[in-house]
């Protein structure tokens, strides 16, 4: 303990914060410690677990790389990537145009629809035609009129709610964990989140009256799925990770991992 105190004091005082990371096959992977089961979570043993953790391990083995998970808050992930604190984000980050302005993405490695869940007293949500007339469907805004719906900040779900649920109170949370807690506490009526995370949560909290209300139809806002976030000029890593995703898909390793967590095709079409 004392060693690390002295070390950090000396390190800071001398401004020698930088240690060059030249070793070649080391990849620092940013994942936020906010529990996001069954994709990523940090258990009481301080071990990472979940679908993405297993998949990451398989990909790194495929790339013959030494991957180290760095825990960074969700909203700090992109700044950390561009600030070179990490080399890759592997945290269910949806590939969106907005994010593509600042970072690059690998190919998708899973795609699951969004879902609305709600409290015992909240009615089911229906589907209507998208008013833009392009033939798409959306969750019926009329059903949510006057209700409070929770979303996580800076997610595709927050964008979706902001665009379509103008008559509802959209409450923005730091983390999905927090809106889930408030849903159980009854402070919000609904939450809009990823369907897989939603199912897990509904299962654990069914006794408290939490239930699924609607699988939200696909929408351009939701993008094409989750990919690994990469720095814009890092084509080397991008090529490697894309090749690795292809390889684990082809070898059946992907499906073996997915089977541990899901009963359906998590990769999408």
């Amino acid at each position: 303990m004392f060693k690390s105190i002295i070390k950090s004091a000396v390190v800071v005082a001398s401004l020698a914060l930088a240690t060059s990371a030249i070793a070649k096959d080391k990849i620092r992977v940013g994942i936020s410690p906010e529990a996001y089961p069954p994709f990523t979570s940090l258990n009481a043993k301080n071990q990472w677990e979940g679908f993405e953790i297993d998949l990451l391990a398989a990909l790194c083995k495929q790339m013959d790389a030494d991957c180290k998970i760095v825990s960074i808050a969700w909203d700090g992930l992109i700044p950390a990537l561009n600030g070179k604190k990490i080399d890759m984000i592997f945290n269910s980050m949806s590939i969106t145009d907005e994010r593509k302005k600042v970072i690059d993405f690998s190919d998708k490695y899973y795609n699951s629809p969004a879902e609305i869940i709600g409290t015992k007293d909240a009615p089911n949500v229906t589907v209507v035609d998208n008013p833009d007339g392009k033939g798409g469907k959306i969750a019926n805004p009329a059903d949510l009129k006057g209700k409070t719906i929770g979303v996580q900040t800076a997610t595709i779900h927050a964008d979706y709610a902001a665009k379509y649920f103008k008559d509802a109170t959209v409450k923005v949370y730091d983390t999905a964990d927090n809106h889930n807690a408030d849903l159980v506490a009854g402070r919000i009526d609904y939450a809009l989140l990823d369907s897989v995370a939603a199912d897990d949560f509904v299962k654990a909290n069914a006794a408290k009256g939490i239930g699924a209300k609607l699988i939200v139809p696909a929408d351009p806002i939701f993008g094409v799925g989750a990919g690994a976030g990469l720095r814009k000029n890092d084509t080397k890593l991008k090529d490697k990770i894309n090749a690795a995703i292809k390889a684990v898909r082809a070898s059946g390793e992907y499906d073996a991992i997915a089977k541990k967590y899901f009963t359906f095709n998590i990769y999408g079409d």
Binding site: S4, S8, A9, V11, V12, L17, A18, T19, S20, A21, I22, R28, V70, I72, G83, K84, K85
Partner: peptide
């Protein structure tokens, strides 16, 4: 320009 790649210890940054 050699220092393009470097790592910041988050602990040290928070302490600073």
């Amino acid at each position: 320009e050699d220092f393009d790649d470097f790592e910041i210890n988050p602990f040290a940054a928070a302490v600073a």
